[in-house]
Design a protein around this nucleic acid. Structure first.
Lengths: 213, 213
DNA sequence: CTAATATTTGATTAAACGATCAAATAAAAG
DNA sequence: CTTTTATTTGATCGTTTAATCAAATATTAG
């Protein structure tokens, strides 16, 4: 008997790790195709070409699988975005890179993006608090939001930006990015990602930059 | 036998209409408390104090119930917002009223708001397209978005606003409003709705107003 | 090569699901 | 008051669900 994810999370055998990856991939496709509500273990197993019992062997239960997948999806997009932010030197450059990278990543990974949305809007804590309402703000785990706030404050302190409420501006930015993520093809058909990116960056800069234009 | 919602939608008896209202109310509470995934007919019936068979009598099936509830929730918030928008005369005034009313409504109806989110993020068309990805944009049904675009174009044409991509700006605005709706108490704790409202209106006006300040 | 351990499956469990039905009750109509 | 129609329930149906188990197979260690 092993206890990989069921308990001690420590080291994984090569084969166990490969299986888990395979199940993540199948889970992403399942969530993208039929949504969280219909994403039963049977549906995921079918797409992975394995038995449902194997999922139960590698993960404690369904929500354990979904939580691990969520962490993985968040890590991937966070890494992509933060790498590009940290390549910039000015606050203005970082802010632009943040917006551009956030939008670019989701456009190039639509299935990952849908899976992420499906999990966030359906997973709940044991005491029934939905993830999408969760306060991961002072929680160090939300590197994305923490970084965005850092950039905004940095620019405000070094004089690049004027005066504004950082929490409010950060929410506006994240909301504008999230809107593009959420509506998928509906908005993509009317405004391509480069245009949206440029327009959003322009709006934010006009709002907070000290020397506009 | 009757066929109220199951078929001919036409006239409703007083008692049938009251029952349906009662079930809507119970469904809202259920969605708010345990989310769409756990919102079985049994859970809704329990909260309404009725049998599950009665739900099946008044609605064709579960998704029929959810669709009727969705329409009702959308109508309520749309009416509230559009009434306040149309009370204004200038495009600038309308835009401010739109943002303020959108935020104010959801803050004063948190359970309705949560129920709306739960339905939108879990309902799918027969061909498995999730509602949240749906293109209701040229679709006349989405009065909210249509009105917002109208206001933006009106201001651009009468000289109140400068040049900008209306679709992009509309998405930014709706995203910023949606972000506040979504994260619930998490953001409310850091930025109250009046501050957020004022900050967002200020940002948009700086972005598109011809004579800023 | 053998023993131990890790992996995988098919069969099975009990619980919950949405939906249907005949029977009971309430309301409306004549 | 009686008949018809509308409303409501409890029991029940067949499915599907997540999860468990012993047995089979593969892999690794000694």
């Amino acid at each position: 008997m092993k206890e990989s994810s069921k308990k001690g999370e420590g080291k994984q055998s090569f084969i166990a790790e490969a299986r888990r990856e395979q199940m993540f991939e199948a889970a992403i496709r399942t969530l993208d195709e039929i949504g969280y509500v219909n994403a039963s273990l049977a549906q995921i197993a079918k797409r992975a070409g394995i038995s449902t019992a194997l999922i139960s062997y590698h993960f404690a239960d369904k929500s354990d699988l979904m939580n691990h997948l969520l962490v993985k999806l968040l890590e991937m997009s966070t890494t992509y975005i933060l790498d590009r932010v940290h390549a910039e030197s000015t606050a203005r450059g970082k802010l632009g890179a943040f917006i551009e990278a956030s939008l670019a990543y989701q456009v190039s990974h639509p299935a990952h993006n849908t899976a992420l949305i499906e999990i966030i809007f359906n997973s709940r804590t044991p005491d029934n608090v939905p993830y999408y309402k969760m306060d991961d703000d002072n929680d160090d785990e939300d590197y994305i939001r923490v970084t965005l706030l850092q950039v905004l404050r940095e620019g405000r302190e070094n004089g690049e930006f004027g005066a504004f409420n950082a929490d409010a501006v950060a929410s506006v930015i994240q909301g504008a990015i999230g809107e593009y993520m959420l509506t998928g093809a509906a908005i993509t058909k009317k405004v391509d990602v480069e245009t949206y990116s440029a327009e959003l960056i322009g709006m934010i800069e006009k709002s907070i930059l000290v020397v506009a234009k």
